[in-house]
């Protein structure tokens, strides 16, 4: 009877071929011959598209959980999670409303009642959205109390404030989409306020609502803003935000 290959044999064979080595670049922990040396630790960051957001080395004090509480990272994680759950919800949602064609609201009922994992994913999306507003807000407070916006990081703070506003807009545009009483009237409160913008009030409100009052056109407009336009702008500002962290010399401090 032939000897069965051991786990290490199989692992070695899987890792030691052209395809595997083309996927995992040198320094990857999944590549054969990874050793816990300074060189491979550096390569692990340098040769990975995601880890490359980070520098190869970070200040030791920044590792302390009570310095950052990971708030910026968690905000980004919430953004990713909301993107993933949001895409799932988009499969089952049509932004159509109006007398006789209350598709959006019916879709919401179906997501809760008959879509597999629909209710769970919707819950994740809803609570994730609230959590993201909260973590972004806490992140801002953390940065302020550490004086981390001081030179050379002034502009990155400005980008951060823009991202906070974008987060609020993302959350608020999503608030209308269930097209229930809660959504309609919460958004009415908000858009009525916008109507009081000095000079351009009526125009601002008209553009936001796609008409004189909240209706099917508003739903479509806010849907596009929510799933496409604001995320697109947010990603651009996120890229600048992350890039500036590196360019401004990494995380601030120590105090």
């Amino acid at each position: 009877m032939p000897k069965l290959p051991t786990y290490d044999d199989v692992k070695g064979n899987v890792q030691d071929n052209v395809i595997w080595k083309s996927i995992f670049r040198p320094g990857s922990i999944y590549r054969k011959g990874y050793r816990d040396t300074s060189r491979d630790r550096a390569l692990a960051s340098m040769n990975n598209v995601l880890y490359h957001l980070h520098p190869v080395k970070v200040k030791r004090h920044g590792l302390k959980l009570t310095y950052t509480y990971c708030l910026g990272g968690l905000s980004f994680f919430m953004f990713i999670l909301l993107t993933v759950t949001g895409i799932f919800l988009m499969f089952f949602y049509t932004p159509a409303a109006g007398a006789g064609t209350e598709v959006a609201y019916l879709n919401m009922r179906e997501i809760s009642a008959s879509v597999t994992f629909g209710q769970l994913v919707r819950n994740l999306h809803r609570w994730g959205a609230h959590a993201m507003v909260f973590t972004v807000f806490l992140h801002m407070a953390r940065v302020f109390y550490h004086g981390a916006y001081k030179p050379p990081r002034e502009f990155n703070w400005v980008v951060g404030v823009i991202l906070l506003v974008l987060t609020l807009l993302l959350s608020f545009t999503g608030y209308l989409l269930p097209w229930d009483q809660l959504a309609l009237w919460a958004v009415t409160v908000g858009t009525n306020m916008m109507g009081f913008t000095p000079v351009f009030g009526d125009q601002v409100q008209f553009v936001l609502l796609g008409g004189m009052e909240i209706g099917p056109d508003t739903l479509l407009r806010w849907y596009v803003l929510h799933v496409l336009f604001i995320p697109f702008v947010t990603v651009i500002f996120l890229a600048v935000h992350f890039w500036r962290i590196r360019k401004d010399g990494g995380i601030s401090g120590p105090l």
């Binding site: 209350e102 819950n123 609570w127 959590a131 229930d180 009483q181």
Partner: peptide, 30 residues
């Protein structure tokens, strides 16, 4: 978040009706 999503359901009211102003009418918490 997963635990929260498992135990707490996101609210869904009745169908939007522009002619019926709810008694309690509030914006999102933020």
């Amino acid at each position: 978040l997963l635990i929260a999503a498992f135990f707490l359901d996101a609210p869904l009211g009745s169908l939007a009706n522009p002619n019926e102003v709810p008694a309690i009418n509030k914006a999102p918490w933020y």
